[in-house]
Simulated assay, not measured.
Amino acid sequence: MCSDIERADPARQYGKWGRMEIVGQGFLARNLRPIASAHSGVVVAAAGVSAAGGTSEEAFAREAGLLYELIHRCKEKGHRLVFFSTASTGMYSTPGEPGREDGPVFPATPYGRHKLALEAVLAASAVDYLILRLGHVVGAAQPPHQLLPAMVRQVMSGRVRLFRGARRDLIDIDDVVTIVDRLLATGVNRTVVNVLSGAAPQIDEIIDDIEAILGRSTQRTYTATGGNQQVSTVRLRRLVGDVAGMGFDKDYYRRVLAKYVPSYATPRSLTRGEPEAAACDRQ
């Protein structure tokens, strides 16, 4: 995902018999391809807005247009549509009760409001659908604006800018793919599922671990942040039994960082983009 929204031709990618149709060419799309042969009659909209901050209305409009097109196509074909939303602070921003899929949400950012609006369009349609609100997905070869590569660049530069008191729930892309595979296999339909570990460490703890992995120390500056709402994974754990074996405990994020941080500290990775202000809030 090198731009705010991936360019995709739904007419070209849709309708190949016998395989899950993945619309998009970016990070999520590439990682979902290995399970495509197991899920015919499913269309995955993996070409949406991928930057939580500073996204243009034009990018939002492109994603909305793509989703409307896919809804019409899925209705005609009788296919199920998978849409990726967000479980970040852009969506869940009110401290207190854990954020639930069936509870009220008060998105704090244009990105969160955009995703919630598209969720409503899909829920009001006649198609079968699965909406997945993702945490901060981490994996190899991510776009430079996303959370982990942005944080590694900042640590390597010696200076990081953080949102004070922020928490970020990291989840390995391999675990995301397993969860999607299981949800589709069991026929979960017309529902929203939070997909994240459920254990969100403080952003300072994440930086501490990245520094330890890379043998670096940084100068930290802070800016104000909004509320951090805990996000419920009760529905996820009920629907996907495999979650119990994924190690979603308080040290899960450390294992994810150890797995992927070194690959983002290479010279090639560091030249993919400049350190970004407040990048530690990226989706």
Rank of each mutant, 00 (worst) to 15 (best):
M1D: 09
D9W: 00
G15H: 04
G15D: 05
G18L: 12
M20V: 07
I22G: 10
F27V: 05
R33F: 03
S37D: 13
V44D: 10
V44N: 12
A47S: 14
S56L: 07
E58V: 15
R62E: 15
R62W: 15
R62N: 15
E63R: 11
L67F: 10
Y68P: 12
E69Y: 00
H72Y: 00
R73I: 00
C74T: 05
G78A: 13
F84H: 09
Y92N: 12
P95H: 10
G99I: 03
G99V: 03
E101R: 03
D102N: 08
G103F: 00
P107S: 02
P110H: 06
G112R: 06
G112K: 08
H114R: 07
V121K: 13
A126R: 12
Y129V: 09
R133D: 14
R133W: 00
H136V: 15
V138R: 01
H145F: 09
Q146T: 14
L148G: 14
A150G: 10
V152K: 01
G158K: 14
R159Q: 15
R161A: 14
L162I: 15
F163C: 14
G165A: 13
R167Y: 09
R168D: 14
L170H: 05
D172R: 00
V176T: 03
V177W: 00
I179G: 02
V180M: 04
T186H: 11
R190I: 10
V192M: 05
V192F: 03
L196V: 03
L196F: 01
L196W: 01
G198F: 07
A199I: 07
E205D: 06
I207V: 15
D208G: 02
A212Q: 00
Q219C: 05
R220K: 08
G226S: 05
N228W: 01
N228P: 04
V231D: 03
T233S: 04
V234P: 05
V234M: 07
R235K: 11
R237W: 10
R238K: 04
R238T: 06
G241E: 13
M246D: 11
M246Y: 11
M246N: 07
G247E: 02
F248N: 02
F248E: 02
D249S: 05
K250Y: 15
V256A: 01
P267F: 02
R268S: 12
L270M: 07
E274D: 03
A278V: 01
C280V: 09
D281G: 14
Q283D: 05
Q283K: 09
